[in-house]
């Protein structure tokens, strides 16, 4: 299956950087997410995860490195986490890492994502990133 590579841009809207690699299962969502049509942007990402979990069935490592996401994007992030949780429930290997920048509020929101989806999320300070 194909990989997804989207280069992030900061213009009238903010497009996040996306790197989903089907050969390694390593997926990155980084930068800023504030989009004209949020669901339309995230739909191909949902479809990629569905195809990967239906056909490749390999491990998935999700690295979130978002410096800003609006509330509309946060709904789509929860959708992604829901899909990952379902994959895990069905025996899939899932690791989720959330890189944060000295932000208590962001940590609270990540804790809320865990409460909403039941998915464990590793919280990693950006300063610890190698």
């Amino acid at each position: 299956m194909d990989n997804i590579h989207i280069k992030g841009v900061h213009e009238a809207y903010f497009v996040p950087t996306v790197n989903f690699d089907a050969s390694t299962g390593i997926c990155e969502l980084a930068g800023e997410s504030y989009l004209e049509e949020t669901t339309k942007f995230y739909q191909p990402l949902f479809e990629w995860i569905k195809e990967y979990t239906d056909t490749v069935k390999g491990p998935l490592i999700f690295n979130f490195k978002l410096s800003y996401f609006n509330t509309s994007s946060s709904k789509c992030l929860v959708d992604i986490l829901d899909m990952l949780k379902n994959y895990q429930k069905n025996g899939g290997s899932v690791t989720v890492n959330w890189y944060y920048d000295d932000s208590d509020e962001e940590l609270e929101e990540v804790e809320d994502f865990t409460l909403e989806t039941g998915l464990e999320i590793n919280k990693i300070p950006i300063s610890d990133e190698d």
Partner: peptide, 13 residues
């Protein structure tokens, strides 16, 4: 968390 769940069920933002 509750409102985000409701918003996912196809309602516009």
């Amino acid at each position: 968390r509750e409102q985000r769940r409701l918003a996912q069920s196809g309602k516009p933002n």
